[in-house]
Design a protein around this nucleic acid. Structure first.
Lengths: 119, 119
DNA sequence: CGGTATCCGCAACGATACTG
DNA sequence: CAGTATCGTTGCGGATACCG
């Protein structure tokens, strides 16, 4: 649990960091289609550790992007979905994500040219 | 210099990381208004070390977002500006940035309610 | 099933000193 | 002025073990 001076000077940086984090992006995009249970979401995303998924979900819940619905049953069942604010956030990152994917090939080519030029 | 398996599996992740990085965002937004010299940009952004600014600019140049114009004069003078692709990138991150700032107060309030609820 | 707690390595970052 | 080189610290993120 941290809160350094940078967050104090520029709180929006922290918000941006949460929604654009490696797993944050994937969680928001996944939950945009439908709600997911924890393990289900973990399998859907792929390559994410329990720890990081739990941490990401907690952060997003704390910020008010994700709603956590823990049903008191055995075995436990917890459903995650987007809040209205989260829906908005997901739209934004998905827009950026679509642009990024559209331009990725160009960027990759740029990198090759750059590396070529100084080898 | 890194290139792990995640980048191989999802190259667009790397691109997203570069444009949304702490200093990457600020560089793109700053260069959108006009071109800057190195130290000038450093002062304008504030709080960024020489090392990180140089690294950020190199990364963005390699990806083809930033154009580096080094004039062969003494003392050295290097101007940085956006390429067309960089202009596009800057628009995207500025849009996300504007949304983030618009919602930051809401998020901060959400965090307080969340923390309150479990203390 | 859906987490938490703990340990730990390694890359990111900042500060400082130096260079063309 | 515009960087590079080196060093020391920090903290993210994975692995593992355990809990309600």
């Amino acid at each position: 649990m941290k809160a350094d001076i940078n967050d104090a000077m520029c709180p929006s940086r922290g918000v941006l960091e949460h929604v654009t984090s490696r797993w944050g992006v994937l969680v928001l995009v996944a939950l945009r289609e439908r709600s997911y249970r924890f393990s289900e979401l973990r399998r859907h995303i792929g390559g994410v550790s329990e720890k990081m998924l739990a941490q990401t979900l907690q952060t997003l819940e704390r910020d008010g992007f994700v709603h956590r619905d823990a049903k008191p049953v055995i075995p436990p069942r917890v459903d995650y979905s987007l809040t209205e604010l989260g829906e908005e956030a997901a739209e934004q990152v998905e827009a950026l994500g679509r642009w990024t994917e559209k331009r990725t090939q160009t960027v990759l080519a740029n990198r090759d040219r750059y590396d070529e030029a100084r080898s």
